[in-house]
Design a binder for these strands. Structure first.
Lengths: 210, 210
DNA sequence: TAGAGTAACTTAACAGTGTTAACCTACCTG
DNA sequence: CAGGTAGGTTAACACTGTTAAGTTACTCTA
């Protein structure tokens, strides 16, 4: 039984896994399901991936790249440095809500269910945060957190966005709350706290009073 | 086979489930494990709980109550209204990090793995957010978001805290980031954005510039 | 050309999961 | 004493990830 493309059952497995993940979700992503859809036995997957974790890690890798692309695109679409952070926040939330299956395996799945993402791959994931950190650094004008190091600030932004994405896509947010309002509120929250100029609304100045 | 306490294998099951959850985590919380530790057959659990989801919902209920207690305690421990929000934020994060198993079943578990928390029980969970909303309402002094309705603001605070808790306890935050710094940063983030006076640090005034 | 080796894949099986159907047994009641 | 029922049980189904062993079929070598 040859494969669809030149030399690559591994590729076929990964493609099928991705397709299964994005269409039916992680809960339905089983070794036997993958095998069934490509007409192989479940154990044949183990010839190309050590275990399910490694297979999922490959998908996480893809997700990290996908997110990275979106963040770079958002970054490049802004001429003014001050707009970059907001654009990247939008890109992050869009990714999280539009690709919930990717987001789940990347940032939601409990370490008990899936082994830690390997350290060397972890670096690439960190690049995403550093991109945000750079946008903060570049857009910083004034504000009370001007002294805070930008990597910490990036993580702070990340936690806020992550909270919005996860609570919204798990449908835990009250139905009376308008998702868009919550999302936009989070952006304002972030920009204001970091002392980056607000959009549309008039600029604000934060002064210290003895 | 009588039970340990008056009339209540149901109680015994729930007690065992809680003990198993808090000691070994949700991943090890199986019907057969529960049954084994109390010396009953796994199917006997179904005489008292319709399915595993219902059993877990009962545990979620407990978790919601536990969190509520902590929030009320935090609220009551503050004489000054302006301190309440911070105290409640601390209480929320403490709960999330100290009782990760409870937090997981309450706010992390994907809806695909566990059926939606029933609507009537959901109300109690909302009380927790309303408590935060009240603290915002009460502590509000000035600030750009003074017009924002407090329930939305509470949800915004929630997303921030939730992000901090989940990313920290899933160990996804870079090791170079000090957890306490991240947490405290989130608090400042929140207070500043809501225009509630900052702790320790001198008060801030937000003015509009034409 | 025969034989050995190996690459690629399969079947069978293990230990675990939630859940259902059928059964069994002891007690209480008419 | 007969019957119903409360409170359990065992067996089984359809899954899960994973391992060990077996089966091809092709290739390389003596």
């Amino acid at each position: 039984m040859p494969e669809t493309v030149e030399n690559g059952l591994q590729r076929l497995i990964l493609d099928t896994a991705r397709q299964l993940l994005t269409t039916t979700g992680y809960a339905q992503l089983s070794m036997r399901n993958i095998a069934k859809t490509i007409g192989y036995s479940a154990t044949s997957i183990y010839l190309y991936f050590e275990n399910k974790d490694e297979l999922v890690h490959a998908l996480i890798d893809e997700g990290v790249d996908l997110l990275y692309e979106r963040l770079v695109e958002a970054n490049d679409s802004c001429a003014v440095p001050q707009d970059r952070l907001l654009a990247m926040c939008r890109a992050y939330v869009s990714f999280g809500l539009e690709r919930p299956e990717y987001y789940e395996i990347m940032y939601v799945l409990h370490p008990e269910y899936i082994k830690r993402y390997p350290a060397e791959k972890y670096r690439k994931a960190r690049k995403n945060l550093e991109l945000i950190g750079a946008a903060i650094e570049g857009g910083r004008v004034h504000g009370p957190s001007a002294d805070m190091d930008s990597f910490l600030a990036a993580n702070l932004v990340w936690t806020q966005l992550h909270g919005v994405v996860t609570l919204l896509s798990s449908e835990r947010v009250d139905k009376r709350i308008d998702p868009d309002q919550l999302i936009e509120g989070a952006y304002q929250h972030i920009l204001r706290s970091l002392g980056i100029r607000d959009l549309g609304i008039s600029d604000e100045v934060v002064e210290k009073r003895s």
